[in-house]
Design a protein around this nucleic acid. Structure first.
Lengths: 143, 143
DNA sequence: ATAATTAAGGATATTTTTGTCCTTAATTTA
DNA sequence: TAAATTAAGGACAAAAATATCCTTAATTAT
């Protein structure tokens, strides 16, 4: 479904979004600890998220990463699209190059509904929703 | 979603299921041509499907692969499970090792509905359904 | 200014997935 | 029986995904 890279990215974004007001920035070390991910690899992912304007980074002591803009306006779909590309949203489930209504793969129509269900969820779930639940101990970012 | 291997497997199974009565067997060469897949790689996949009792193979002239049992009783879910394993059905969307109701990942509940939708489809779509549509020119196995 | 801290990014390594090649085994046809 | 055909399977290769290491650049605190 999602690549491992993308899973790390989603959990990392939620973690940063879950930080308290006044301390909205976390270091690479904090983040990879919070989501139990390999630090150096996570660094690459965070760099990509910064390049894609989903995070802002600051170097130096007390530097780190923070959400670019409002967490309530960042949706899962943006993270997935940024890391895994739009293939989950537009690619053919059975790998056909030119899968389309006029040339559909064997699961085209059945899959269409599922894809819409999935993308609908990704486009309607924002970071604040998820961060709040993490802060309330309702959901978890690791283990 | 599905691995490339799994996509080949699904299309291959549909192709074999689409063969006319009295000629229900296709060679590796025929199959990989019909689904436009790399021949040697497809051989490995077919071997796995034979080992998993989804296909029957016969060596020698006019040998090849045929569906083991009734195509109408083989569901997409079996193929996916055979090739990709049950992670699509049971794994955590965000990669948590012990994701569960009492320790859910950030998308656990939202994802649950989608997973059920997907697995419902996979468990209710059989090879005959799909093969018929291919035979009627309604859907396609390549390009 | 200097030292300490932290992200950026290049190079490289490891693992997994995808793919190829070749020999062997089984079966059929002549 | 011999030759031809086709799948099985081991060994290997290439590509992609995942992961590490190290140096540089930026920022902050002393």
């Amino acid at each position: 479904m999602f690549s491992k890279t993308c899973k790390y990215a989603i959990n990392a974004m939620i973690y940063v979004a879950s930080l308290p007001i006044g301390n909205e920035r976390a270091s690479l070390k904090d983040i990879s600890k919070a989501i139990n991910s390999p630090e150096a690899f996570t660094a690459k992912i965070l760099q990509a998220l910064v390049r894609d304007d989903l995070l802002i980074s600051v170097k130096g002591p007390h530097g780190g990463f923070s959400i670019n803009g409002k967490a309530s306006e960042i949706y899962l779909a943006q993270i997935v699209d940024s890391i895994d590309g739009n293939l989950l949203f537009t690619g053919c489930a059975l790998g056909l190059k030119k899968c389309a209504e006029e040339h559909p793969c064997a699961v085209h129509y059945k899959f269409k509904a599922i894809r819409e269900h999935l993308t609908g969820m990704l486009h309607s779930t924002n970071l604040t929703d998820m961060a709040d639940r993490v802060n309330n101990g309702i959901s978890f970012l690791k283990y």
